[in-house]
Design a protein around this nucleic acid. Structure first.
Length: 554
RNA sequence: UGCCCGGUGGUGUAACGGUAGCACAACAGAUUUUGGUUCUGUUUGCCCAAGUUCGAAUCUUGGCCGGGCAACCA
């Protein structure tokens, strides 16, 4: 295989189907339930489904699987559409399973007529008991042998609202002894006197997912119906419905869902984090949702590249968070404008620099992209530098400031530390240094070489901003499968707010959608909480930090 | 204990009977006015056992291990 891209197993199937002439065009669909926000796991499914119809002739539908009115809301419909578009994909048709309710009802009637479905008055407990266990066969319900006529009229009455929630259900009549639990007379319809986000109060019976999903695929002529592994045992049931109903044979293929380390991926758990206010909302930048990644400063490209790289397979997986971080760093390195910001300031006084003097220092916006241009930054006698860039008693490998040590101020002068002051509590309050006038950036005739370069801001010129630093939401790699409740593993330091960070003047006019690198600190993105008077920056991701590793070795 | 799915370096993912490769991570070095970027190099792997074959990660059989299935959820 010389340089050819290797295909995943679904692409292989599609390619084979097209080659054999089974289909001239393929149709796929992305079928979210509007009961939560989309997460990075959905992104994988989106890239797969929409990606397939980019590579091969055909199209992809968006279908909202809205068969459970109790949990579904229009807010979720809107967020899902926005997220798919943001990721860069377009659907051909927008459908809702609820659009097929009448058709599905008719399908159910058809099965009753064939003697393949019956109304059951049993309680949920009785039905559960009647299903048996994986190792013991189930037993028939006493209502299993009702006549077609009786079933027809009872089902009609169910629809008409004659019964209360839970009083009756419609079940498929298959085989209570099947080794596959899904085939033991599964429920097709249940009664729910609930308001539906689209059909309102028109219906009081709703189809189960298992009776809606496959048929909806069939109605839309979906050729390759792609879903996750947990539905593998359901496939024989879908095939059974298709066979008995004699409708378009859509085929289901299953892949392993994406798991990401240090987070959770189930909508139920994410909803808990939102409802219990552990995070500020579905788009809290610590969440693994698409809207959270967007807010945090991730780009569609980075997420698509990530999804490409993780591949499509049937084995369980737990992807390293560092892989996702690699892709956003890769993208940001090309795009982000470099800026100076001091997050934890300490004052530096250049004692031999004239008081009141200001110089404009020129510097590049992005060393990786000359087209990004250059800008100037004001320099003066008193500067903010990062507290961690000074050590009173530094080790040999510390290439920053310490008594007697010299560093380059990025795009400005080389300075040498000549002393420092402490406050009452023993904290460093002020650092004193002298600069080398001949060492000005771009005009350096000092002949001096220094090992380190640090960032800085002129105190009289610096502006303030709020900066939010995020870390992984959980302390353990796989919180969902860790000992105890997943919430016990929340990382208490996942959010650090710096209300008064300093930023360079040019940053004061930041526009939304601009990505920045705060030099030596990481990539940052303007948060939606920003106002003209109070800019808020989210840290998208840190830079790789080999010094941090070096420090940890001790 | 029934049925189904799956096991390739630390994590992902290739190989389609013919030299186990790629990415991330890790480690070492070079370059660097970001301890970033870039570049170079290194470590680490076919779940086990039999069989078929000149040759097996790949095919067969048996084991072992992991996951899923018994919601009026999807």
């Amino acid at each position: 295989m010389s340089g050819e891209k290797s295909l995943n197993f679904i692409e292989e199937i599609v390619e084979e189907d097209i080659k054999e002439g089974k289909y001239a065009n393929i149709v796929t669909r992305f079928p979210p339930e509007p009961n939560g926000y989309l997460h990075i796991g959905h992104a994988k499914a989106i890239c797969l489904n929409f990606g397939l119809t980019r590579e091969y002739p055909g199209y992809t539908n968006l279908r909202f699987d809205d068969t459970n009115p109790v949990t579904e809301e229009t807010e979720y419909v809107d967020s899902i559409k926005a997220d798919i578009k943001w990721l860069g994909f377009e659907w051909k048709n927008e459908h809702y399973t609820s659009d097929y309710f009448e058709q599905l009802y008719e399908f159910a009637v058809r099965l009753i007529r064939k003697g393949l479905a019956y109304v059951d008055d049993s309680t949920p407990e009785e039905i559960a008991e009647g299903k048996g266990t994986p190792t013991t066969p189930g037993a028939a319900s006493p209502y299993r042998e009702r006549s077609v006529e009786e079933n027809l009229s009872l089902f009609k009455e169910m629809r008409e609202g004659k019964y209360k929630d839970g009083e009756k259900v419609l079940r498929a009549k298959i085989d209570l002894t099947d080794a596959n639990m899904q085939m033991r007379d599964p429920l097709m319809y249940r009664i729910k006197h609930a308001h539906h986000h689209r059909t309102g109060d028109e219906w009081c019976i709703y189809p189960m997912y298992d009776f809606a999903h496959g048929q909806s695929d069939s109605i839309e002529n979906i050729t390759h119906s792609i879903c996750t592994l947990e539905f593998v045992p359901h496939r024989p049931l879908y095939d059974w419905f298709i066979d008995k109903l004699e409708i378009f044979p859509s085929h289901q293929y299953e892949f392993a869902r994406l798991n990401l380390s240090y987070t959770v991926m189930s909508k139920r758990k994410l909803l808990q984090l939102v409802n219990e206010k552990i995070v500020s909302g579905w788009d809290d930048p610590r969440m693994p949702t698409i809207s959270a990644f967007r807010r945090r400063g991730y780009t569609p490209e980075s997420i698509r590249n990530f999804c490409d790289r993780v591949g499509v397979q049937k084995r369980e997986n737990l992807i390293d968070l560092s892989l996702l971080e690699f892709f956003i760093r890769e993208d940001m390195n090309k795009k982000a404008l470099r800026r100076m910001a001091v997050l934890d300031p300490v004052k530096l006084v250049i004692t031999n620099y004239p008081e009141g003097k200001t110089e404009e220092m020129e510097t590049e916006n992005n060393p990786e992209d000359p087209a990004a241009g250059r800008r100037t930054i004001p320099f003066s006698r008193e500067l903010w530098i990062e507290r961690e860039d000074f050590m009173e008693d530094p080790p040999k490998k510390f290439f920053r400031l310490g008594p007697g040590r010299a560093v380059r101020l990025k795009s400005a002068y080389i300075i040498q530390c000549i002393g420092f002051k402490k406050d009452d509590k023993g904290n460093i309050a002020e650092i004193h240094a002298e600069y080398l006038p001949q060492s000005r950036s771009g005009h350096d005739s000092s002949g001096m070489k220094v090992k380190g370069t640090i960032h800085w801001l002129s105190i009289p010129h610096a502006k303030k901003a709020e900066v939010r630093l995020y870390d992984r939401l959980f302390k353990v790699e796989d919180p969902a499968n860790a000992e105890g409740d997943f919430k016990e593993h929340i990382n208490p330091d996942s959010l650090q707010i710096i209300p008064n960070a300093f930023i360079e003047p040019s940053l004061a006019n930041s526009e939304p959608d601009e990505h920045f690198q705060f030099i030596r600190k990481g990539y940052f993105y303007l948060d939606k909480d920003s106002t003209t008077n109070n800019l808020v920056f989210n840290r998208t991701v840190t830079l790789k930090d080999t010094w941090a590793k070096e420090k940890n070795k001790e």
